[in-house]
Write a protein that binds this DNA or RNA. Structure first.
Lengths: 259, 259
DNA sequence: TGGAGGGTTGACGCAGCGTCAAGGTCAAGC
DNA sequence: GCTTGACCTTGACGCTGCGTCAACCCTCCA
Protein backbone atom coordinates (compact mmCIF):
# COMPACT_ATOMS: atom_id res chain seq x y z
CA UNK A 1 0.00 0.00 0.00
CA UNK A 2 1.35 3.39 -0.99
CA UNK A 3 1.20 6.72 0.76
CA UNK A 4 0.09 9.76 -1.15
CA UNK A 5 3.67 10.85 -1.68
CA UNK A 6 4.70 7.53 -3.16
CA UNK A 7 1.65 7.47 -5.37
CA UNK A 8 2.33 10.97 -6.62
CA UNK A 9 5.99 10.23 -7.26
CA UNK A 10 5.13 7.11 -9.26
CA UNK A 11 2.77 9.01 -11.51
CA UNK A 12 5.04 12.03 -11.71
CA UNK A 13 2.65 14.53 -10.15
CA UNK A 14 2.64 16.56 -6.96
CA UNK A 15 0.93 15.53 -3.76
CA UNK A 16 -1.18 18.63 -4.01
CA UNK A 17 -2.40 17.60 -7.44
CA UNK A 18 -3.53 14.21 -6.14
CA UNK A 19 -5.48 15.86 -3.35
CA UNK A 20 -7.00 18.19 -5.87
CA UNK A 21 -8.17 15.24 -7.95
CA UNK A 22 -9.80 13.81 -4.86
CA UNK A 23 -11.42 17.14 -4.18
CA UNK A 24 -12.97 17.39 -7.63
CA UNK A 25 -13.97 13.75 -7.57
CA UNK A 26 -11.67 12.60 -10.34
CA UNK A 27 -9.87 10.08 -8.19
CA UNK A 28 -11.84 8.32 -5.43
CA UNK A 29 -10.68 8.83 -1.86
CA UNK A 30 -8.95 5.65 -0.67
CA UNK A 31 -9.17 4.01 2.73
CA UNK A 32 -7.18 5.50 5.58
CA UNK A 33 -4.79 3.62 7.80
CA UNK A 34 -4.85 3.72 11.59
CA UNK A 35 -3.21 7.14 11.71
CA UNK A 36 -5.44 8.70 9.10
CA UNK A 37 -3.03 8.47 6.19
CA UNK A 38 -4.46 7.72 2.78
CA UNK A 39 -3.38 4.30 1.52
CA UNK A 40 -3.43 3.56 -2.20
CA UNK A 41 -3.53 0.36 -4.17
CA UNK A 42 -2.34 -0.39 -7.67
CA UNK A 43 -5.61 0.54 -9.37
CA UNK A 44 -5.28 4.06 -7.99
CA UNK A 45 -1.87 4.31 -9.61
CA UNK A 46 -3.30 3.26 -12.95
CA UNK A 47 -6.16 5.73 -12.64
CA UNK A 48 -3.83 8.54 -11.72
CA UNK A 49 -1.56 7.87 -14.68
CA UNK A 50 -4.55 7.91 -17.01
CA UNK A 51 -5.70 11.20 -15.54
CA UNK A 52 -2.25 12.74 -15.90
CA UNK A 53 -1.98 11.56 -19.48
CA UNK A 54 -5.21 13.26 -20.43
CA UNK A 55 -4.43 16.37 -18.43
CA UNK A 56 -1.00 16.66 -20.06
CA UNK A 57 -2.71 16.45 -23.41
CA UNK A 58 -4.68 19.55 -22.51
CA UNK A 59 -7.96 17.96 -21.50
CA UNK A 60 -9.68 20.04 -18.81
CA UNK A 61 -10.08 18.14 -15.56
CA UNK A 62 -13.83 18.63 -15.70
CA UNK A 63 -14.01 16.43 -18.80
CA UNK A 64 -11.49 13.79 -17.87
CA UNK A 65 -13.98 11.98 -15.68
CA UNK A 66 -16.46 11.53 -18.52
CA UNK A 67 -13.73 10.61 -20.96
CA UNK A 68 -12.45 7.80 -18.78
CA UNK A 69 -15.87 6.18 -18.84
CA UNK A 70 -16.68 6.95 -22.45
CA UNK A 71 -16.86 4.41 -25.25
CA UNK A 72 -14.58 4.76 -28.24
CA UNK A 73 -16.77 7.01 -30.39
CA UNK A 74 -17.72 9.36 -27.56
CA UNK A 75 -14.06 9.47 -26.67
CA UNK A 76 -13.03 10.35 -30.20
CA UNK A 77 -15.67 13.04 -30.33
CA UNK A 78 -14.43 14.57 -27.10
CA UNK A 79 -10.89 14.48 -28.44
CA UNK A 80 -12.10 16.44 -31.45
CA UNK A 81 -13.61 19.14 -29.29
CA UNK A 82 -10.52 19.45 -27.14
CA UNK A 83 -8.31 19.64 -30.18
CA UNK A 84 -10.28 22.38 -31.85
CA UNK A 85 -10.26 24.28 -28.58
CA UNK A 86 -6.51 23.95 -28.43
CA UNK A 87 -6.32 25.18 -32.02
CA UNK A 88 -8.31 28.26 -31.10
CA UNK A 89 -6.07 28.96 -28.14
CA UNK A 90 -2.98 28.67 -30.27
CA UNK A 91 -4.45 30.99 -32.84
CA UNK A 92 -5.26 33.52 -30.15
CA UNK A 93 -1.69 33.46 -28.94
CA UNK A 94 -0.34 33.71 -32.48
CA UNK A 95 -2.44 36.82 -32.95
CA UNK A 96 -1.06 38.21 -29.74
CA UNK A 97 2.46 37.57 -30.96
CA UNK A 98 1.78 39.43 -34.18
CA UNK A 99 0.30 42.35 -32.31
CA UNK A 100 3.13 42.50 -29.87
CA UNK A 101 5.66 42.43 -32.66
CA UNK A 102 4.20 45.72 -33.90
CA UNK A 103 4.81 47.39 -30.58
CA UNK A 104 8.60 47.40 -30.86
CA UNK A 105 8.77 51.09 -30.14
CA UNK A 106 6.63 52.73 -27.50
CA UNK A 107 5.89 55.20 -30.25
CA UNK A 108 3.59 52.87 -32.11
CA UNK A 109 1.49 52.06 -29.06
CA UNK A 110 -2.16 51.92 -30.07
CA UNK A 111 -1.50 53.64 -33.37
CA UNK A 112 -1.34 52.47 -36.97
CA UNK A 113 1.92 53.05 -38.88
CA UNK A 114 0.60 55.89 -41.02
CA UNK A 115 0.02 57.97 -37.91
CA UNK A 116 3.57 57.28 -36.79
CA UNK A 117 4.97 58.67 -40.02
CA UNK A 118 2.79 61.73 -39.61
CA UNK A 119 4.14 62.29 -36.09
CA UNK A 120 7.63 61.91 -37.48
CA UNK A 121 6.91 64.63 -40.00
CA UNK A 122 5.69 66.90 -37.24
CA UNK A 123 9.01 66.46 -35.51
CA UNK A 124 10.80 67.38 -38.69
CA UNK A 125 8.93 70.64 -39.19
CA UNK A 126 9.96 71.65 -35.72
CA UNK A 127 7.21 70.51 -33.39
CA UNK A 128 8.49 69.99 -29.88
CA UNK A 129 8.52 66.56 -28.16
CA UNK A 130 5.73 67.63 -25.88
CA UNK A 131 3.72 68.80 -28.85
CA UNK A 132 4.20 65.51 -30.65
CA UNK A 133 3.22 63.68 -27.50
CA UNK A 134 0.02 65.70 -27.35
CA UNK A 135 -0.71 64.91 -30.97
CA UNK A 136 -0.11 61.23 -30.40
CA UNK A 137 -2.68 61.14 -27.64
CA UNK A 138 -5.16 62.85 -29.92
CA UNK A 139 -4.60 60.36 -32.68
CA UNK A 140 -5.09 57.49 -30.29
CA UNK A 141 -8.58 58.81 -29.66
CA UNK A 142 -9.26 59.14 -33.36
CA UNK A 143 -7.78 55.80 -34.34
CA UNK A 144 -9.85 54.06 -31.69
CA UNK A 145 -13.03 55.52 -33.16
CA UNK A 146 -12.43 55.23 -36.88
CA UNK A 147 -9.67 52.69 -37.36
CA UNK A 148 -10.69 52.00 -40.94
CA UNK A 149 -10.55 55.65 -41.97
CA UNK A 150 -7.08 56.41 -40.76
CA UNK A 151 -5.46 56.11 -44.15
CA UNK A 152 -7.55 58.83 -45.75
CA UNK A 153 -7.57 61.08 -42.74
CA UNK A 154 -3.83 60.98 -42.40
CA UNK A 155 -3.15 61.54 -46.08
CA UNK A 156 -5.40 64.62 -45.91
CA UNK A 157 -3.42 65.78 -42.91
CA UNK A 158 -0.18 65.26 -44.75
CA UNK A 159 -1.46 67.43 -47.59
CA UNK A 160 -2.39 70.17 -45.17
CA UNK A 161 1.18 70.31 -43.95
CA UNK A 162 2.13 71.75 -47.35
CA UNK A 163 0.44 74.89 -46.14
CA UNK A 164 3.12 77.04 -44.49
CA UNK A 165 0.48 78.56 -42.22
CA UNK A 166 -0.08 75.21 -40.58
CA UNK A 167 3.65 74.69 -40.15
CA UNK A 168 3.87 78.07 -38.52
CA UNK A 169 0.96 77.14 -36.27
CA UNK A 170 2.60 73.95 -35.05
CA UNK A 171 5.79 75.83 -34.24
CA UNK A 172 3.86 78.50 -32.43
CA UNK A 173 1.95 75.96 -30.38
CA UNK A 174 5.16 74.12 -29.58
CA UNK A 175 6.72 77.29 -28.33
CA UNK A 176 3.68 78.09 -26.24
CA UNK A 177 3.60 74.59 -24.77
CA UNK A 178 7.25 74.70 -23.81
CA UNK A 179 7.23 78.23 -22.49
CA UNK A 180 5.47 79.42 -19.41
CA UNK A 181 3.42 81.87 -21.46
CA UNK A 182 0.30 83.08 -19.77
CA UNK A 183 -3.16 83.91 -21.04
CA UNK A 184 -2.37 87.30 -22.56
CA UNK A 185 0.74 86.31 -24.46
CA UNK A 186 0.55 87.91 -27.92
CA UNK A 187 1.57 84.57 -29.47
CA UNK A 188 -1.79 83.19 -28.37
CA UNK A 189 -3.56 85.73 -30.50
CA UNK A 190 -1.44 84.91 -33.48
CA UNK A 191 -2.07 81.18 -33.09
CA UNK A 192 -5.80 81.72 -32.79
CA UNK A 193 -5.78 83.90 -35.87
CA UNK A 194 -4.02 81.25 -37.89
CA UNK A 195 -6.36 78.55 -36.65
CA UNK A 196 -9.44 80.55 -37.53
CA UNK A 197 -7.96 81.32 -40.91
CA UNK A 198 -7.23 77.65 -41.59
CA UNK A 199 -10.73 76.69 -40.50
CA UNK A 200 -12.10 79.28 -42.90
CA UNK A 201 -10.06 77.87 -45.78
CA UNK A 202 -11.06 74.32 -45.02
CA UNK A 203 -14.67 75.26 -44.67
CA UNK A 204 -14.63 77.06 -48.02
CA UNK A 205 -13.02 74.02 -49.63
CA UNK A 206 -15.79 71.85 -48.24
CA UNK A 207 -13.43 69.71 -46.25
CA UNK A 208 -14.08 67.98 -42.99
CA UNK A 209 -16.49 65.29 -42.08
CA UNK A 210 -19.32 67.77 -41.77
CA UNK A 211 -22.58 65.97 -42.26
CA UNK A 212 -21.29 62.39 -42.63
CA UNK A 213 -20.13 62.10 -39.10
CA UNK A 214 -22.78 62.49 -36.45
CA UNK A 215 -20.45 61.64 -33.69
CA UNK A 216 -19.36 64.61 -31.66
CA UNK A 217 -17.76 62.64 -28.89
CA UNK A 218 -14.25 62.28 -30.30
CA UNK A 219 -14.10 66.01 -31.02
CA UNK A 220 -15.24 66.91 -27.57
CA UNK A 221 -12.61 64.57 -26.24
CA UNK A 222 -9.92 66.14 -28.37
CA UNK A 223 -10.78 69.56 -27.02
CA UNK A 224 -10.93 68.23 -23.50
CA UNK A 225 -7.65 66.44 -23.95
CA UNK A 226 -5.88 69.62 -24.92
CA UNK A 227 -7.19 71.38 -21.86
CA UNK A 228 -6.34 68.49 -19.56
CA UNK A 229 -2.79 68.32 -20.81
CA UNK A 230 -2.31 72.06 -20.60
CA UNK A 231 -5.06 74.14 -18.98
CA UNK A 232 -3.98 77.17 -21.00
CA UNK A 233 -5.60 75.50 -23.98
CA UNK A 234 -8.90 76.64 -22.54
CA UNK A 235 -7.94 80.17 -23.49
CA UNK A 236 -7.34 79.05 -27.06
CA UNK A 237 -10.77 77.44 -27.21
CA UNK A 238 -12.34 80.64 -25.94
CA UNK A 239 -10.53 82.63 -28.56
CA UNK A 240 -11.73 80.28 -31.26
CA UNK A 241 -15.28 80.80 -30.06
CA UNK A 242 -14.80 84.53 -30.22
CA UNK A 243 -13.83 84.05 -33.85
CA UNK A 244 -16.99 82.08 -34.53
CA UNK A 245 -15.79 78.48 -34.36
CA UNK A 246 -17.18 75.92 -31.98
CA UNK A 247 -14.20 73.70 -31.60
CA UNK A 248 -10.53 73.40 -32.04
CA UNK A 249 -10.59 70.34 -34.12
CA UNK A 250 -13.94 70.14 -35.78
CA UNK A 251 -15.17 72.30 -38.59
CA UNK A 252 -18.21 73.76 -36.98
CA UNK A 253 -19.37 77.33 -37.27
CA UNK A 254 -21.25 78.72 -34.36
CA UNK A 255 -24.71 79.74 -35.59
CA UNK A 256 -24.98 82.34 -32.89
CA UNK A 257 -22.11 84.42 -31.65
CA UNK A 258 -21.20 83.54 -28.07
CA UNK A 259 -22.83 85.71 -25.45
CA UNK B 1 -17.07 64.24 -18.78
CA UNK B 2 -17.85 60.61 -19.40
CA UNK B 3 -19.49 58.00 -17.23
CA UNK B 4 -17.85 54.65 -16.82
CA UNK B 5 -20.15 53.09 -19.39
CA UNK B 6 -19.32 55.69 -22.02
CA UNK B 7 -15.62 55.36 -21.32
CA UNK B 8 -15.77 51.59 -21.61
CA UNK B 9 -17.76 51.76 -24.83
CA UNK B 10 -15.28 54.18 -26.40
CA UNK B 11 -12.34 51.91 -25.64
CA UNK B 12 -14.26 48.77 -26.52
CA UNK B 13 -14.06 47.12 -23.12
CA UNK B 14 -16.60 46.18 -20.46
CA UNK B 15 -17.48 48.32 -17.48
CA UNK B 16 -16.31 45.51 -15.26
CA UNK B 17 -12.90 45.54 -16.91
CA UNK B 18 -12.49 49.26 -16.23
CA UNK B 19 -13.35 48.76 -12.58
CA UNK B 20 -10.89 45.92 -12.46
CA UNK B 21 -8.14 48.17 -13.81
CA UNK B 22 -8.97 50.64 -11.06
CA UNK B 23 -8.81 47.85 -8.52
CA UNK B 24 -5.35 46.73 -9.56
CA UNK B 25 -4.14 50.30 -9.86
CA UNK B 26 -3.62 50.31 -13.62
CA UNK B 27 -6.01 53.17 -14.21
CA UNK B 28 -6.29 55.87 -11.54
CA UNK B 29 -9.68 56.36 -9.92
CA UNK B 30 -11.22 59.56 -11.29
CA UNK B 31 -13.17 62.18 -9.38
CA UNK B 32 -16.76 61.46 -8.50
CA UNK B 33 -19.69 63.69 -9.32
CA UNK B 34 -22.30 64.79 -6.77
CA UNK B 35 -24.08 61.44 -6.89
CA UNK B 36 -20.95 59.38 -6.55
CA UNK B 37 -20.58 58.45 -10.22
CA UNK B 38 -17.07 58.23 -11.62
CA UNK B 39 -16.43 60.96 -14.19
CA UNK B 40 -13.69 60.52 -16.77
CA UNK B 41 -11.77 62.98 -18.88
CA UNK B 42 -10.03 62.50 -22.21
CA UNK B 43 -6.71 61.42 -20.73
CA UNK B 44 -8.45 58.49 -19.07
CA UNK B 45 -9.73 57.42 -22.47
CA UNK B 46 -6.23 57.54 -23.91
CA UNK B 47 -4.82 55.58 -20.99
CA UNK B 48 -7.51 52.97 -21.24
CA UNK B 49 -6.93 52.48 -24.95
CA UNK B 50 -3.23 52.02 -24.34
CA UNK B 51 -3.93 49.48 -21.65
CA UNK B 52 -6.31 47.56 -23.89
CA UNK B 53 -3.80 47.55 -26.72
CA UNK B 54 -1.12 46.00 -24.55
CA UNK B 55 -3.55 43.57 -22.93
CA UNK B 56 -4.81 42.45 -26.33
CA UNK B 57 -1.24 41.81 -27.33
CA UNK B 58 -0.96 39.34 -24.48
CA UNK B 59 0.84 41.49 -21.95
CA UNK B 60 -0.15 40.50 -18.41
CA UNK B 61 -1.87 43.33 -16.56
CA UNK B 62 0.76 43.23 -13.86
CA UNK B 63 3.38 44.40 -16.34
CA UNK B 64 1.36 46.92 -18.29
CA UNK B 65 1.82 49.56 -15.62
CA UNK B 66 5.60 49.40 -15.81
CA UNK B 67 5.57 49.27 -19.58
CA UNK B 68 3.54 52.44 -19.90
CA UNK B 69 6.18 54.34 -17.95
CA UNK B 70 9.17 52.65 -19.52
CA UNK B 71 11.60 54.26 -21.89
CA UNK B 72 12.10 52.82 -25.35
CA UNK B 73 14.81 50.31 -24.54
CA UNK B 74 13.16 49.00 -21.37
CA UNK B 75 9.97 48.75 -23.36
CA UNK B 76 11.62 46.77 -26.11
CA UNK B 77 13.19 44.48 -23.55
CA UNK B 78 9.83 43.83 -21.91
CA UNK B 79 8.33 43.12 -25.31
CA UNK B 80 11.02 40.52 -25.82
CA UNK B 81 10.19 38.78 -22.58
CA UNK B 82 6.48 38.76 -23.29
CA UNK B 83 7.06 37.42 -26.76
CA UNK B 84 9.26 34.57 -25.65
CA UNK B 85 6.70 33.73 -23.00
CA UNK B 86 4.02 33.63 -25.66
CA UNK B 87 6.26 31.38 -27.74
CA UNK B 88 6.60 28.99 -24.84
CA UNK B 89 2.87 28.93 -24.30
CA UNK B 90 2.25 28.19 -27.95
CA UNK B 91 4.79 25.43 -27.89
CA UNK B 92 3.16 23.92 -24.84
CA UNK B 93 -0.19 23.86 -26.59
CA UNK B 94 1.32 22.42 -29.75
CA UNK B 95 2.75 19.62 -27.65
CA UNK B 96 -0.65 19.07 -26.14
CA UNK B 97 -2.15 18.85 -29.61
CA UNK B 98 0.37 16.23 -30.64
CA UNK B 99 -0.27 14.23 -27.52
CA UNK B 100 -3.97 14.40 -27.89
CA UNK B 101 -3.75 13.32 -31.51
CA UNK B 102 -2.27 10.05 -30.30
CA UNK B 103 -5.21 9.35 -28.08
CA UNK B 104 -7.65 8.71 -30.91
CA UNK B 105 -8.71 5.39 -29.43
CA UNK B 106 -9.24 4.91 -25.73
CA UNK B 107 -7.05 1.86 -26.24
CA UNK B 108 -3.87 3.89 -26.54
CA UNK B 109 -4.49 5.82 -23.34
CA UNK B 110 -1.22 6.23 -21.48
CA UNK B 111 0.47 3.56 -23.56
CA UNK B 112 3.01 3.62 -26.38
CA UNK B 113 2.03 2.05 -29.72
CA UNK B 114 4.17 -1.07 -29.30
CA UNK B 115 2.17 -2.07 -26.26
CA UNK B 116 -1.04 -1.62 -28.21
CA UNK B 117 0.13 -4.07 -30.85
CA UNK B 118 1.06 -6.51 -28.12
CA UNK B 119 -2.42 -6.27 -26.63
CA UNK B 120 -3.85 -6.83 -30.07
CA UNK B 121 -1.85 -9.99 -30.39
CA UNK B 122 -3.16 -11.19 -27.04
CA UNK B 123 -6.67 -10.79 -28.39
CA UNK B 124 -5.75 -12.85 -31.41
CA UNK B 125 -4.41 -15.75 -29.43
CA UNK B 126 -7.71 -15.90 -27.60
CA UNK B 127 -7.31 -13.73 -24.52
CA UNK B 128 -10.65 -12.44 -23.28
CA UNK B 129 -11.52 -8.72 -23.23
CA UNK B 130 -11.27 -8.66 -19.48
CA UNK B 131 -7.89 -10.32 -19.65
CA UNK B 132 -6.64 -7.79 -22.17
CA UNK B 133 -7.99 -5.01 -19.99
CA UNK B 134 -6.06 -6.41 -17.05
CA UNK B 135 -2.91 -6.57 -19.13
CA UNK B 136 -3.38 -3.01 -20.28
CA UNK B 137 -3.50 -1.73 -16.73
CA UNK B 138 -0.34 -3.62 -15.97
CA UNK B 139 1.48 -2.15 -18.91
CA UNK B 140 0.42 1.31 -17.88
CA UNK B 141 2.28 0.79 -14.63
CA UNK B 142 5.34 -0.48 -16.45
CA UNK B 143 5.33 2.19 -19.13
CA UNK B 144 5.09 4.90 -16.49
CA UNK B 145 8.20 3.57 -14.79
CA UNK B 146 10.43 2.69 -17.71
CA UNK B 147 9.10 4.57 -20.71
CA UNK B 148 12.42 4.36 -22.53
CA UNK B 149 12.69 0.57 -22.19
CA UNK B 150 9.30 -0.29 -23.61
CA UNK B 151 10.63 -1.24 -27.04
CA UNK B 152 12.94 -3.96 -25.77
CA UNK B 153 10.59 -5.22 -23.12
CA UNK B 154 7.74 -5.58 -25.55
CA UNK B 155 9.81 -7.27 -28.22
CA UNK B 156 10.95 -9.79 -25.61
CA UNK B 157 7.33 -10.35 -24.70
CA UNK B 158 6.41 -10.89 -28.33
CA UNK B 159 9.09 -13.52 -28.58
CA UNK B 160 7.77 -15.31 -25.52
CA UNK B 161 4.39 -15.65 -27.20
CA UNK B 162 5.96 -18.11 -29.62
CA UNK B 163 5.98 -20.50 -26.70
CA UNK B 164 2.72 -22.49 -26.84
CA UNK B 165 2.79 -22.86 -23.07
CA UNK B 166 2.38 -19.14 -22.65
CA UNK B 167 -0.49 -19.10 -25.13
CA UNK B 168 -2.13 -21.86 -23.20
CA UNK B 169 -1.60 -19.89 -19.99
CA UNK B 170 -3.28 -16.78 -21.32
CA UNK B 171 -6.27 -18.81 -22.44
CA UNK B 172 -6.46 -20.53 -19.09
CA UNK B 173 -6.32 -17.25 -17.23
CA UNK B 174 -8.94 -15.77 -19.51
CA UNK B 175 -11.24 -18.65 -18.83
CA UNK B 176 -10.68 -18.35 -15.10
CA UNK B 177 -11.29 -14.60 -15.17
CA UNK B 178 -14.55 -14.99 -17.06
CA UNK B 179 -15.83 -17.96 -15.10
CA UNK B 180 -16.90 -17.96 -11.51
CA UNK B 181 -14.26 -20.54 -10.67
CA UNK B 182 -13.38 -20.75 -7.01
CA UNK B 183 -10.14 -21.39 -5.17
CA UNK B 184 -9.99 -25.13 -5.66
CA UNK B 185 -10.72 -25.20 -9.37
CA UNK B 186 -8.27 -27.65 -11.00
CA UNK B 187 -7.58 -25.09 -13.74
CA UNK B 188 -5.87 -22.96 -11.10
CA UNK B 189 -3.38 -25.71 -10.45
CA UNK B 190 -2.68 -26.10 -14.12
CA UNK B 191 -2.16 -22.38 -14.58
CA UNK B 192 0.21 -22.25 -11.62
CA UNK B 193 2.16 -25.18 -12.95
CA UNK B 194 2.61 -23.51 -16.30
CA UNK B 195 3.63 -20.26 -14.70
CA UNK B 196 6.20 -21.95 -12.49
CA UNK B 197 7.49 -23.83 -15.48
CA UNK B 198 7.83 -20.66 -17.53
CA UNK B 199 9.59 -18.93 -14.69
CA UNK B 200 11.98 -21.83 -14.50
CA UNK B 201 12.73 -21.64 -18.22
CA UNK B 202 13.24 -17.90 -18.10
CA UNK B 203 15.43 -18.19 -15.06
CA UNK B 204 17.56 -20.84 -16.72
CA UNK B 205 17.86 -18.65 -19.82
CA UNK B 206 19.03 -15.79 -17.64
CA UNK B 207 16.17 -13.54 -18.68
CA UNK B 208 14.55 -10.92 -16.61
CA UNK B 209 15.88 -7.72 -15.18
CA UNK B 210 17.46 -9.57 -12.30
CA UNK B 211 20.27 -7.52 -10.90
CA UNK B 212 19.97 -4.43 -13.09
CA UNK B 213 16.71 -3.29 -11.66
CA UNK B 214 16.67 -2.51 -7.97
CA UNK B 215 13.15 -1.25 -8.05
CA UNK B 216 10.66 -3.65 -6.62
CA UNK B 217 7.77 -1.23 -6.54
CA UNK B 218 6.37 -1.82 -10.02
CA UNK B 219 6.40 -5.59 -9.47
CA UNK B 220 4.66 -5.30 -6.14
CA UNK B 221 2.12 -3.09 -7.84
CA UNK B 222 1.60 -5.59 -10.62
CA UNK B 223 0.89 -8.32 -8.12
CA UNK B 224 -1.37 -6.04 -6.12
CA UNK B 225 -3.16 -4.95 -9.26
CA UNK B 226 -4.04 -8.51 -10.17
CA UNK B 227 -5.47 -9.11 -6.72
CA UNK B 228 -7.40 -5.85 -6.70
CA UNK B 229 -8.98 -6.58 -10.04
CA UNK B 230 -9.84 -10.13 -9.11
CA UNK B 231 -9.26 -11.25 -5.52
CA UNK B 232 -8.93 -14.84 -6.63
CA UNK B 233 -5.51 -13.85 -7.94
CA UNK B 234 -4.33 -14.04 -4.35
CA UNK B 235 -4.70 -17.80 -4.53
CA UNK B 236 -2.50 -17.83 -7.62
CA UNK B 237 0.17 -15.85 -5.80
CA UNK B 238 0.06 -18.29 -2.92
CA UNK B 239 0.42 -21.21 -5.29
CA UNK B 240 3.41 -19.56 -6.91
CA UNK B 241 4.99 -19.20 -3.51
CA UNK B 242 4.39 -22.85 -2.82
CA UNK B 243 6.32 -23.53 -6.00
CA UNK B 244 9.23 -21.41 -4.83
CA UNK B 245 8.61 -18.11 -6.64
CA UNK B 246 8.18 -14.83 -4.91
CA UNK B 247 6.07 -13.04 -7.42
CA UNK B 248 3.84 -13.41 -10.36
CA UNK B 249 5.66 -11.11 -12.59
CA UNK B 250 9.18 -10.88 -11.39
CA UNK B 251 11.81 -13.55 -11.66
CA UNK B 252 12.67 -14.06 -8.06
CA UNK B 253 13.30 -17.33 -6.36
CA UNK B 254 12.46 -17.60 -2.70
CA UNK B 255 15.62 -18.42 -0.82
CA UNK B 256 13.70 -20.20 1.90
CA UNK B 257 10.61 -22.25 1.32
CA UNK B 258 7.49 -20.56 2.70
CA UNK B 259 6.49 -21.71 6.16
C1' DT C 1 -44.77 59.59 -11.68
C1' DG C 2 -43.16 55.54 -12.81
C1' DG C 3 -40.16 52.62 -15.27
C1' DA C 4 -36.05 51.74 -18.00
C1' DG C 5 -31.47 51.96 -18.04
C1' DG C 6 -27.73 53.80 -16.21
C1' DG C 7 -24.54 53.92 -11.84
C1' DT C 8 -22.53 52.14 -6.85
C1' DT C 9 -20.03 48.53 -3.67
C1' DG C 10 -19.40 43.75 -2.30
C1' DA C 11 -18.73 39.22 -3.04
C1' DC C 12 -18.45 34.65 -5.23
C1' DG C 13 -16.94 31.89 -9.33
C1' DC C 14 -13.74 30.09 -12.93
C1' DA C 15 -8.96 26.30 -13.43
C1' DG C 16 -5.49 23.95 -11.43
C1' DC C 17 -3.13 23.67 -8.44
C1' DG C 18 1.12 26.43 -5.28
C1' DT C 19 1.95 27.66 -0.91
C1' DC C 20 1.70 28.77 3.85
C1' DA C 21 -0.11 27.47 8.60
C1' DA C 22 -0.37 24.56 12.41
C1' DG C 23 -0.06 20.72 13.63
C1' DG C 24 0.19 14.83 14.07
C1' DT C 25 3.13 10.55 12.58
C1' DC C 26 6.97 7.61 11.38
C1' DA C 27 11.65 5.79 11.13
C1' DA C 28 16.20 6.29 12.57
C1' DG C 29 20.05 7.44 15.31
C1' DC C 30 21.66 8.73 19.99
C1' DG D 1 13.37 7.68 25.74
C1' DC D 2 14.39 11.78 23.04
C1' DT D 3 15.39 14.41 19.13
C1' DT D 4 15.38 15.20 14.26
C1' DG D 5 13.83 15.29 9.70
C1' DA D 6 10.79 13.71 6.37
C1' DC D 7 6.09 12.88 5.46
C1' DC D 8 1.17 13.07 6.50
C1' DT D 9 -3.33 15.73 7.85
C1' DT D 10 -7.04 19.65 7.09
C1' DG D 11 -8.03 24.43 6.03
C1' DA D 12 -7.55 28.40 3.67
C1' DC D 13 -5.72 32.10 0.73
C1' DG D 14 -3.37 33.33 -3.79
C1' DC D 15 -3.05 33.68 -8.73
C1' DT D 16 -5.44 35.86 -13.69
C1' DG D 17 -8.88 38.68 -15.63
C1' DC D 18 -12.57 39.61 -15.38
C1' DG D 19 -18.24 37.55 -15.54
C1' DT D 20 -22.07 37.55 -12.94
C1' DC D 21 -25.31 38.05 -9.34
C1' DA D 22 -27.22 40.95 -5.39
C1' DA D 23 -29.14 44.87 -3.40
C1' DC D 24 -29.51 49.41 -3.86
C1' DC D 25 -29.19 54.45 -5.69
C1' DC D 26 -29.50 58.09 -9.68
C1' DT D 27 -31.15 60.10 -14.02
C1' DC D 28 -33.80 60.82 -17.70
C1' DC D 29 -37.85 60.54 -20.52
C1' DA D 30 -42.74 59.77 -21.77
Amino acid sequence: MLTIGQLAAYAGVTVRAVRHYHHVGLLPEPERDASGYRRYGATAVVSLIKIRTLANAGVPLSRIGQMLEADASTFAEAIQRIDSHLRDEIERLETSRKQIAELTAGDTLALPPEVISYLERLRQIGASERMVERERSGWILIAARWPEHMREVISAKHAQLDNPQLVRLYRLLSELLESGADDDDPLLEEAADIMADLQEQAYAAGEGFGEQVHDDLPFHLLDALAVEIDPRAQRMLDMMRERGWASWTRLERLTKPPE
